[in-house]
Amino acid sequence: MSSDALAHWIENSFIAHAMAASVWVYPVVETLHMISIVVLVGTAAMFDFRLLGWRLTNMPVAELASQLRPWIRVGIVGILMTGPLLFASDPDRYLDNFYFRLKMTFLLSTILFDLFVVRRLRSPHSTAGAAAQRFAGGFSLLLWAGIVAGGRGIGVF
């Protein structure tokens, strides 16, 4: 299935029709998307600041991770419920948008970096030194900044 055919299929799906049902649907979904961003990026950034050795250094990394985990999950669930709806409202526009592609690239990089690097640092059995933690925290913050900048770019440019 080509991306054009995929876009066409999504455009005609019931989700796209629901998104177009009222002028209120899109702004409300976008607002819920932003609320999820504050919860997710706010908590994730705090964890990265800990890895950087800047904030909450009195708390072990693994313990902070376990305290923040439920709220990071709340943010992720909110993003997953709203982002695809926004995309489905006009797939062609998003697929053609440079900043959307940029955001998705940063998003994929963040997921891979988390799965393969940060997850090890979060483990209570992690033996990673401060230098590795600092690098991971700084790099993760840059990736988040890319996601946010790309996201805003979709609407602005």
Partner: peptide, 22 residues
Amino acid sequence: GYGIPQMVHLGSMALFGGAVVL
């Protein structure tokens, strides 16, 4: 000129709002 302040505004709002939410 317009895009960069927008990006900074959203990112810093997430930082400030996120800290208050915590």
